[in-house]
Design a protein around this nucleic acid. Structure first.
Lengths: 244, 244
DNA sequence: ACAATAGTGTCTCTTAGACACTATGCG
DNA sequence: CGCATAGTGTCTAAGAGACACTATTGT
């Protein structure tokens, strides 16, 4: 900042914002992808990519506002769980020049989502995360970004209430447990799960949860939707490797 | 990215990188600050700020390279612990216009640091973190950034080997324990501490540690300096509040 | 030999994990 | 009335915290 402060004659990097939007649909963890336009001069024509784009300095007051806007445009969801994931920047990631992207990651319930088709972003779809990770044909460095996002999600799910943001309220404890199991990819003990959730004091009762179950379950709602709860310990440290 | 891809006639935000560099000096956690120039047109003239500045697209291949460069220029340290903290961007944070900064945070041992004085960044100094947080007169939104960095540091120290990066090798377990206590601001039990460190298997013996102690202590070195170790549990969960 | 620090042993109490059990509503 | 799911109780064992102890070296 010192060296060349007032005189700005050097080339500026492009600034973009991308959003990794997760949901659980049909018992599978999914991520929202958009197909890149086929127009001339466009990088990665026809390839799938994370939703995002240039910051509009005239519209977006902050980076987070920009992320919210993009999420709303693509999904119609206005109150997601949203946190910053990190940023990726360099000379090589976009053929158009030096660029830096600020990446956010969001969790939303599948229901109530209205995907924005047509317009300019040709197509939008929910992809199973496992499939995308297996054959990562994404544009730019989005495969790496997605990988990081999934890692972050999995690791935080071990000790936070994050999966609650994947469900529409009111939800039942069995449903919530299901979310944990889907994201973690392994079963979770029912009894321990319930004690843990209820003693963390972040849920309040709210009627009865939807579901085609034999016995209806109590409904719950988040007391505070603004942030997840951090549990004092991780799930199943019994299996603790000493690495990472 | 879709809407206005090829035609870039709209204003680009400024892209900067800032680095929060921590060390422990004289038994106190400190952060490196630089004084902003007094020249005309400079924002926050004379104020203290985090070291950082514009990305130089001709020199820096990636954001992290840029952070490494700035750290090397200011401290002479070439192999710090470096991780990304997050990014802050918006219309209001810099009077010169819409700007986004990518912030990294670094840990370095105090010894061997050669502060770069003079030149253009008028002055450089280690400030006690506690003092700066008490009277946050920093330029831009750097006070908020520092606060976030300290939070992140403190929280990660609870369950990782991060403080090892604050020491020159070889170091002793008592010295390492001291680092934990200084960062956490509370005493840590010796016995538990040792079991924990040694069973995590990230240290290897390396001679004898420096120190004016009565009884010399065994020296240790990190087996892998590239990343910290994550412990399965936090320190003293006994005191666990249910919040945050 | 003594002081000061390095390093070890032991006890207790919490709590997670495992799993068996009871309760309840639907077909 | 039985069955599938919701929800509870109990046992065990691992580990953390606390603290008392022993070991080693410099002065």
């Amino acid at each position: 900042m010192a060296t060349r402060s007032s005189v700005k004659t050097f080339p500026l990097p492009f600034t973009t914002v991308d959003v990794v939007i997760f949901t659980v649909l049909d018992d599978v963890l999914r991520v929202l992808l958009v197909q890149r336009p086929n127009a001339e001069g466009e990088p990665f024509p026809g390839a799938w990519a994370l939703p995002g784009g240039y910051v509009d300095t005239a519209v977006d007051a902050t980076l987070e506002d920009c992320a919210r806007r993009k999420l709303l445009e693509k999904t119609g969801v206005g109150s997601p769980y949203l946190e910053q994931l990190g940023s990726w920047g360099g000379a090589a990631r976009d053929p158009r020049g030096w660029s830096a992207t600020h990446v956010y990651f969001a969790l939303i319930p599948a229901q109530g989502v209205v995907l924005a088709k047509g317009a300019n972003a040709a197509d939008v779809a929910w992809y199973a995360v496992a499939d995308v990770l297996r054959a990562p044909e994404l544009a730019f460095d989005h495969a790496a970004i997605l990988r990081t996002a999934v890692e972050r999600l999995r690791s935080k799910v071990e000790y936070t209430s994050l999966p609650a943001f994947l469900l529409a309220e009111p939800f039942s404890l069995p449903q919530l447990q299901r979310m944990y199991e889907i994201v973690l990819g392994r079963p979770v003990d029912k009894s321990g799960f319930r004690t843990r959730m209820l003693s963390a004091n972040f849920l309040e009762e709210a009627g009865v949860a939807e579901g085609d179950s034999y016995r209806p379950a109590k409904g719950y709602r988040l007391i505070d939707r603004s942030a997840p709860v951090v549990f004092p310990r991780t799930f199943s440290p019994r299996a603790g490797d000493s690495n990472t």
